[in-house]
Nucleic acid binder design. Structure first.
Lengths: 117, 117
DNA sequence: TCCTCGTTCAACCTCGCGGTTGAAGAAGAC
DNA sequence: GTCTTCTTCAACCGCGAGGTTGAACGAGGA
């Protein structure tokens, strides 16, 4: 994947299995085998999912004997929340201004009660 | 797409062009032609992007003569932020508890200053 | 040393995504 | 009515994502 960081994070979390992995890693670190156990896919498939999460910066893998404990890196969430909040605020600001406009010219725009249509 | 709502929203925002469309719609509603103008892809491709955003619940399209003004629906953002905040809090809670553990047994775990390695 | 366990690499397959072109609908404008 | 504009539908293409199997690698344990 040669996409921008934001696309990588959104794309990584667009898969339900990967979101579930993130949810479980929020509770405790785990190895690939442990993570793969609940799903009916091969360990290799889960390893690929973890690579996607790692490329997105959502998890990190250390080394501990043969095991590679997977650890959740929650800081990257900020990237998304910042993006989301920015445009949500902007959209809400629009509504607020629209309300102002409607309040300033109620006769022209707002349907008046009792006005025959 | 027959995916769950959360996957649809994350997936919809995983594309930079679609994120840009959302950013522009946060400023003002726009028609398909207006939205397509800045990009060097066909109008049909942009129409497909809008369908993805619509299926995710991020935009709605009304009818106004031949035009179909596109409107941003910011409420769906909540789906994502709720999911993100939940696991971010959980992860931060883990760090907090880990700090407590380390504070309770500093000799066993924490590297002591001046301790020969 | 050899064996076993946990993990990843390599090759392959299928399917859906983002793009194209071309045609069809929908709703004014003439 | 016909024409024009805006938009979407249909068919197609290339490519990458998610899955598989099989083999290789890395690091203890016997």
């Amino acid at each position: 994947m040669v996409a921008d960081p934001l696309s990588r994070v959104f794309s990584a979390l667009a898969d339900p299995t990967r979101r579930d992995i993130v949810a479980r890693l929020a509770v405790a670190d785990a190895t690939v085998n442990e993570l793969a156990a609940p799903y009916d896919v091969t360990v290799q498939a889960v390893s690929k999912h973890l690579k996607v999460l790692e490329d997105a910066g959502l998890v990190s893998r250390s080394r501990e004997a043969q095991r590679r404990p997977v650890h959740l890196e929650a800081e990257v969430f900020d990237l998304m929340t910042k993006w989301i909040e920015r445009y949500r605020r902007q959209a809400e600001e629009r509504y607020r201004r629209l309300d102002d406009v409607l309040r300033d010219m109620p006769d022209a725009v707002l349907p008046q009660e009792g006005t025959p249509s």
